[in-house]
């Protein structure tokens, strides 16, 4: 390894450091739960590591209907916010399912998007919530929908000298995230399903993780869900569409056949959770 660690206080300084370096020379560190594994495996071998810990991005703010989450806020801080849990239950589901509590005390939303894993549990939920990524760079600030930000595994729309400052969710939505794993903690989801209901038609968003090459929304399933409160036949058609059209592949975690079988069940379960939220607990019991 043998890198130097730099921890600037101002975003402009951080972007400058990135912009003036050759590709691969500087690695970005938020919670480090992905990056440190890449350093150990030798996949990343930077001269410098740029720590984001002093940047003023550990915030969580509602502006009217919009929730803006700072990129470096630990996931556990989002999870303990009772308003987030009550108003966007699917975001709570997705975050609560990440790794373990020890991990979530340091892992961040910015890091999850930066890694852009096809098995991310957070990107599907952000897709279903129509979230966007606010980016700062040497050229200024821009905002990109998550759908255009995530390109493939380890590949994002970030340009040289750019960092994720925050993530914005335009409105609170009834929502749910359900997953299937071998172990509930510290395991990677074989399939993850995010469902959210928007305030206006078209109401439904269905997004998937555990697909290649990146988490996706599934318009074929969404189209089957017309009503704000869909009846069973619509839900069954949506689940079938998901099983037919999801870009699943076979890998060491599951076969394509198993994933297709599974996704139908998870889609139905997630829609049921969104449609009948009454028995969902709110706040720590």
């Amino acid at each position: 390894m043998g890198f130097t660690l730099v921890a600037p206080e101002r975003p402009e300084e951080a972007c400058e450091i990135l912009a003036s370096a050759a590709p691969g020379q500087v690695a970005v560190l938020a919670g480090g739960t992905d990056l440190l594994l890449d350093l150990d495996s030798g996949r990343s071998h930077p001269d410098r590591v740029l720590s984001l810990r002093r940047l003023p991005w550990r915030s969580l703010q509602w502006n009217g209907p919009t929730l803006t989450i700072g990129s470096t806020l630990p996931l556990s801080e989002i999870e303990v916010d009772p308003v987030v849990r009550a108003r966007i239950p699917g975001l709570w589901d997705a975050i609560h399912g990440v790794g373990s509590l020890q991990l979530r005390h340091r892992a961040t939303l910015g890091g999850n998007l930066g890694r852009a894993s096809p098995t991310s549990d957070l990107i599907p939920m952000l897709l279903a919530l129509d979230a966007s990524v606010e980016i700062v760079g040497v050229q200024g600030i821009r905002s990109v929908p998550v759908d255009e930000f995530v390109l493939a595994s380890r590949s994002t729309a970030l340009r040289v000298g750019e960092l994720i400052a925050s993530i914005s969710i335009p409105e609170a939505r009834p929502s749910a995230y359900v997953w299937q794993r071998v172990r509930p903690s510290n395991d990677i989801s074989q399939v993850g399903v995010a469902v959210a209901r928007a305030s206006r038609a078209p109401f439904w968003r269905v997004a998937l993780g555990g697909v290649t090459p990146r988490p996706v929304r599934l318009p074929e399933a969404e189209r089957e869900l017309r009503a704000e409160r869909p009846l069973t036949p619509e839900v069954v058609r949506a689940a079938e569409a998901a099983a037919t059209h999801a870009p699943f592949a076979t890998d060491k975690r599951a076969t394509e056949t198993y994933r297709r079988q599974l996704v139908g069940v998870l889609v139905r379960r997630a829609i049921a959770m969104v449609s009948a939220p009454l028995d969902r607990p709110v706040g720590w019991a």
Binding site: L5, A7, G32, T33, L36, L37, Q102, L103, H105
Partner: peptide
């Protein structure tokens, strides 16, 4: 490798000391 950082559990194997 769990330790407490300001009272919160964290993984010391995935944390740089200067952080």
């Amino acid at each position: 490798c769990t330790v407490l950082l300001d009272g919160r559990s964290a993984l010391s194997c995935l944390t740089l000391t200067h952080e």
